[in-house]
Design a protein around this nucleic acid. Structure first.
Length: 169
DNA sequence: GCCAACGTTGGC
DNA sequence: GCCAACGTTGGC
C-alpha cells in the first residue's frame, strides 16, 4: 500500500466536483509529464490512497482523501482529437499516457492548507516533494510517515464551550 | 549530446 | 500580473 499526492486546479476539477461525480469516482486523466506518468503507470496500485491537493487557487492545500480504485490504464483522452488533452503524437497500440481511477473517501473541511504544511517544512515534512522549491510535478509519492503526520494536522471541530459569564448562578 | 528558446506551472 | 523554476523542443 502506497500513498500519493494528486494536484488539481479547482477551477478545472476540484474536490466538490468529485463529490458530485457518480460513485464519487473519476478518471484521473490528462497528466502529460513523464515522471508523473511513471508514478501512475508503474507505482500506483488499486487500494493506494492519495491526497487531493488544490493548486493555483485562493487557498492551496490538501482538500480531500481519495483511493485509487483502478490502477494505471491507457489515457483515452490522448487519442481523442476533441479532448483538450489530445496528444497527436500518441500511438494507440503503444500508449504514452496513463490514467487511474480515484474515488473520494473524505473531503477535508477545512482543508489542510499549504501554509499549514509549510509550518512543518523544516521538520516532519522536510522531504515532502510538494514543499520543495520549484516542484511542479502533479503526481508525487508521499511516505507513510508524511501521510500520517499530515492527517494529524487536521483541525478537530471546535466545540462550542459555555462562556464563563453564561454559567448559571 | 549540448543548450538556448520557449511554454507551463504555481505561489504570491 | 509577475516571475522563478522546470520540462520540452529543436537546431547544431
Amino acid at each position: 500500500m502506497n500513498y500519493w499526492l494528486l494536484k488539481s486546479e479547482p477551477s478545472v476539477f476540484g474536490i466538490d466536483e468529485l463529490a458530485k461525480a457518480p460513485r464519487k469516482t473519476t478518471s484521473w486523466e490528462g497528466v502529460r509529464n513523464f515522471q508523473a506518468r511513471n508514478f501512475m503507470r508503474d507505482g500506483m496500485a488499486k487500494g493506494d490512497q492519495a491526497f487531493f491537493y488544490h493548486s493555483s487557487c485562493d487557498v492551496p492545500g490538501v482538500a480531500g482523501i481519495v483511493t485509487i480504485v483502478r490502477a494505471g490504464y491507457p489515457d483515452g483522452s490522448a487519442f481523442d482529437p476533441d479532448s483538450e488533452y489530445y496528444d497527436p503524437k500518441c500511438i494507440k497500440d503503444n500508449p504514452t499516457w496513463y490514467a487511474v481511477d480515484v474515488r473520494l473517501d473524505e473531503k477535508l473541511d477545512p482543508a489542510i492548507t499549504l501554509e499549514t504544511l509549510r509550518m512543518h517544512s523544516t521538520r516532519e515534512l522536510k522531504d515532502l516533494l510538494i514543499l520543495r522549491r520549484g516542484n511542479r510535478l502533479s503526481v508525487t509519492p508521499v511516505t507513510k510517515r508524511e501521510w500520517d503526520f499530515i492527517l494529524s494536522l487536521r483541525e478537530v471541530p471546535t466545540r462550542v464551550r459555555p462562556r464563563p459569564n453564561s454559567v448559571k448562578k
